[in-house]
Write a protein that binds this DNA or RNA. Structure first.
Length: 558
RNA sequence: GAUUGCGUAGCUCAGUCGGUAGAGCAGCGGCCUUUUAAGCCGUAGGUCCUGGGUUCAAAUCCCAGCGCAAUCACCA
């Protein structure tokens, strides 16, 4: 935004609408004497707070007094609160010598009336000519109109910012999803629902932090720029540090650094931060997403389960309260009287206890055979049309059959922990001592989405090294360019990491569930979109590094 | 990455059988001191996503590309 001089002509490319707005800007400044870009304002009230200052008695008393005053010519007594508000114009009705407009800020909308008789001439002209989308500051007593609308009867009006852009349709708002994402700053004011979701997101994240802090977890921040991207099976973004002339990766998970924190002596740590994965985009995947990872020394996947259930139950209770206060629909009482929140067509019941089912039991129910009976499992796989089953190891077939016919059995309306996964498909998890075929891992499913896994972490450096090495062998050439053994991490395990439980929760997905959002892009302020810029010459198969064939099979955590 | 759908004025959308572009809102010029998507009179606004092709004629049919969405794959 350069400081334009009044004489500067509008660029030819600008539409008529923009040109007329520029002309108004000039008029507001040169003829009416308003700074079109405002100045500091003290004593501003949020619009919701200003509305709360409305008093029916004061309004009625003033109404009566002014009628009487009309007869006697006296000045009517006025006990109405005087408020100063600022907001974007979202409605504007010019009645001639009286202008009604609605100002909107993040807390709500409020009507302002500007009467020719009540304000300076320039302020009246400003109110009359102001455009949808302009930011206005108004001050005056708060009362009602004849139709009952709570209203600021302006005594002073000024400009906070002249908007030069064409506004969206005033009734339908901005509804094209592409425009909403690309011009989120318009979406946020045009669709109050959007702003509300992001305010709720902020409160949810803040509650998660308070919850974790109250339980004695220490929030830490570990590297996003990593020389080796580890801790998960995913393709990373690549970058480069110029001064060090060193290739770097954007992290795919903080896991290996958080575990180093346990080695260093931190008992309970967590991190809420961004991960980056160079993979597909859909309703539940954005290339950068926010995850919370938690590690608790001397805990295991059971302590993580208790923590997770308490946390999500707590958040759901808070959301029910928040939705009630906001007048939004909440579900009835859950099976044990717990909180119920709508999510699209579903009503999700967050009652404690959450459903718990072992992988093995769920497999039996879905597949109709025992998962350790590989002949039967392979027969089932063939019956399902998984033609490539012959090429897979037994346990990978088990996993495919599980995903095909057991996962759909999970009730999307009840948060469900699926526990005790086969060790063979969870290579970085600690096998159970009593049954090494199974390991200390669960995944929690809500609304049909996987919200996060937890593990009883492996802390034997020799086993860890063996598993890493095995994994590296499985990676193809392209993958191996970024699947490098993190020797320093293994070294840290040699120093000695206490036994621990670890947890990862996809914060965006949790926020989707709690805010009744159907797409991850509705809970990420500025989701990644393809550039609209014309294609550069010769940027054919762009990207180069990090491009790989199929993504890694099996492998790390989270 | 695959399949399907969509792309028309600043925004929200119509557009019939292929016949040469429509509405509402927003804008501009008027009127109006109690409006609630205010109303009334007048007026202007188009690369029909882009590029080819078929045709006397293309927003419309065909091909390719770009963008978005949904589903699938991958993943969390």
């Amino acid at each position: 935004m350069s400081e334009t001089t009044p004489q500067e002509p509008a660029p030819l490319s600008e539409s008529e609408i923009v040109a007329s707005r520029r002309a108004k800007l000039k008029r507001f400044r040169d003829e009416l004497g308003f700074d079109p870009y405002g100045r500091r304002e003290d004593g501003l009230l949020a619009i919701a707070a200003a509305r709360a200052r409305f008093s029916e008695e004061a309004h009625v008393a003033f109404d009566a007094a002014s009628k009487e005053a009309k007869a006697t010519g006296a000045v009517p007594a006025d006990a109405r609160a005087v408020v100063k508000v600022a907001g974007r114009i979202v409605q504007h009705r010019d009645m001639g010598k009286l202008v009604f407009l609605f100002l909107r800020d993040e807390s709500g909308d409020l009507q302002v009336s500007v009467s020719k008789a009540a304000v300076e001439a320039n302020a009246f002209e400003l109110a009359k000519a102001a455009d949808y989308g302009d930011i206005l500051v108004a001050e005056g007593p708060i009362g009602r109109t004849n139709k009952g609308e709570v209203c600021v009867w302006a005594t002073r009006v000024s400009l906070g910012a002249k908007s030069l852009a064409a506004p969206p349709e005033k009734w339908h708002g901005l509804s094209d999803p592409e425009l909403r994402y690309r011009r989120r700053y318009v979406d946020m004011y045009a669709n109050p629902e959007t702003a509300r979701v992001f305010a709720m997101r902020a409160r949810i994240v803040s509650r998660i932090r308070r919850f974790m802090d109250a339980r004695g977890f220490l929030e830490v921040e570990t590297p996003v720029l990593q020389p080796i991207a580890g801790g998960a099976a995913a393709r990373p973004f690549t970058t480069h540090h110029n001064a060090l002339d060193m290739p770097l990766f954007m992290r795919i998970a903080p896991e290996l650094y958080l575990k180093r924190c346990l080695v260093g002596g931190m008992r309970k740590v967590y991190e809420i931060n961004r991960n980056f994965r160079n993979e597909g985009i859909d309703r539940s995947h954005n290339p950068e997403f926010t995850a919370m990872e938690v590690y608790e020394a001397f805990g295991d996947y059971g302590t993580m389960m208790e923590l997770t259930e308490s946390l999500i139950h707590h958040l759901a209770c808070e959301m029910v309260e928040e939705r009630r206060t906001a007048g939004l629909r909440v579900g009835g009482a859950g099976v044990s009287g717990g909180p119920v929140l709508p999510w699209g067509e579903l009503d999700i019941d967050y009652s404690s206890p959450f459903v718990k089912v072992t992988f093995e039991e769920l497999f039996r129910r879905g597949a109709g055979c025992d998962m350790r009976d590989f002949a039967a499992v392979r027969a089932k796989a063939r019956a399902l049309g998984l033609h490539h089953e012959a090429k897979l190891d037994d346990w990978l077939v088990v996993n495919e059959v599980f995903e095909e016919c057991a996962e759909p059995l999970i009730d999307p309306c009840r948060p469900t922990f699926v526990t005790d996964y086969p060790s063979a498909i969870s290579p970085l998890t600690r096998p159970h001592a009593h049954d090494p075929a199974l390991c200390g891992r669960w995944d929690i499913f809500i609304g049909g989405m996987e919200v996060g896994p937890a593990y009883t972490e492996l802390n034997d450096p020799d086993i860890q090294l063996a598993k890493f090495t095995e994994q590296l062998k499985g990676a193809d050439d392209e993958e191996s360019t970024f699947r490098t053994l993190d020797e320093d991490f293994v070294e840290s395990l040699r120093v000695g990491m206490p036994p621990a439980g670890g947890l990862g929760i996809g914060i965006d997905r949790l926020v989707m569930l709690l805010t009744d959002s159907q797409s991850i892009r509705d809970v990420i302020l500025f989701p990644l979109l393809k550039s609209m810029a014309p294609k550069q010459e010769g940027d054919g198969e762009g990207g180069g590094e990090g491009e790989g064939g199929g993504a890694a099979k099996s492998g790390g955590h989270a």
